[in-house]
């Protein structure tokens, strides 16, 4: 495991050598691009001077473009396979940069009910933390909105979708969503929340901090409280504070699904023209990996004193 304090040393001892190696390759490609670019454009301009028309320049332009795209793609792959993979393996997990949480699982979580028109995802991570099996990936979903004649694509969710084994068995569904109405409108907001027909019954819980931040819907009042013990409610509030994001959770089929909205693409290589020896960037990515691993401890999922192993 890589606690944040040790990331500095991990970066220096393990990552840096890899980064330097890849950076050298990257630099070689950039040099080639510059060379071909100079020669090609120079030649094209020369021909233009001799009235050969724009055609050669266009060919050079296209050629450079495809050359760049091909190498940029290979570079991104190399970055993920070597740099990101090293960080994730160091945390004791497995990485598959092309895989993602399946759409069926996203739908099973019932966190977002809007019909999906586009589903993207990558950077699939899986493994076991203590006694808890976890998996997560980046997920990006969109829906089509009809604005009269045009259709626009709006974001439903963008961020990390995290799934873990929960430490209690249960049969129904309990959904914990960010609370807007109740905190803004008080009792009336609560009344509005209870009218949400898309969701099962509203569950009102005792923890005031928790209630201020979240609204809970559940198929069974007692089961919802069995899952959301006073201790767990405190931990969820702590989790929300630490991630500073509008997280949502659902408890279905003895698993917990957590959606952490993050409005950018993570685990991506920087531009081909920039050095990859960027401590700040990699520290940020490592922070996200650590956040997901720490969910297990934060929500106390390794405490297995009930009937589930």
């Amino acid at each position: 495991m890589q606690p944040v304090e040790n990331f500095q040393s991990f970066y220096n001892t393990t990552l840096r050598p890899k980064l330097k190696e890849i950076d050298a390759q990257r630099q070689a490609i950039v040099d080639k691009i510059k060379l071909y670019g100079a020669v090609g454009i120079g030649g094209g301009l020369l021909l233009l001077f001799f009235n050969a028309g724009m055609f050669p320049l266009i060919i050079v332009g296209a050629g450079l473009y495809f050359f760049y795209q091909h190498h940029a793609k290979a570079f991104r792959e190399t970055y993920k396979q070597n740099v990101i993979r090293t960080m994730i393996t160091a945390a004791g997990l497995t990485y598959d940069h092309n895989s993602r949480i399946q759409q069926s699982e996203y739908e099973k979580s019932k966190l977002f009910l809007k019909k999906i028109n586009r589903y993207y995802g990558d950077d699939y991570v899986s493994g076991v933390v203590g006694k808890t099996a976890i998996r997560f990936s980046e997920v990006f979903t969109q829906y089509e909105q009809n604005n009269g004649d045009e259709k626009t694509l709006e974001t439903i969710f963008r961020g990390i979708l995290f799934i873990a084994d929960f430490n209690k068995e249960f049969a129904g569904e309990t959904i914990v969503l960010p609370d807007v109405s109740e905190s803004a409108l008080g009792g009336f907001g609560s009344f509005l929340q209870s009218l949400n027909y898309a969701r099962p019954q509203l569950v009102k819980l005792e923890d005031p901090d928790f209630e201020k931040n979240f609204v809970v819907y559940g198929t069974d009042q007692v089961e919802a409280r069995y899952i959301l013990s006073p201790a767990l409610m405190q931990r969820i509030v702590e989790f929300k504070t630490r991630t500073a994001a509008r997280v949502s959770l659902s408890f279905i089929d003895s698993h917990v699904y957590i959606a952490i909205p993050i409005n950018k693409n993570l685990f991506e290589a920087p531009s081909l023209f920039k050095s990859i020896d960027n401590y700040k960037q990699l520290s940020e990515y490592n922070g996200y990996i650590q956040m997901c691993v720490n969910i297990v401890e934060l929500l106390d999922l390794n405490t297995r004193i009930w009937s589930k192993d």
Binding site: V203, K204, E206, E223, A224
Partner: peptide, 14 residues
């Protein structure tokens, strides 16, 4: 034990 606690909490809420 946990379920009894949950049932009591549900009762109190009701």
């Amino acid at each position: 034990e946990e379920q009894i606690s949950a049932a009591r909490r549900a009762f109190n809420a009701a």
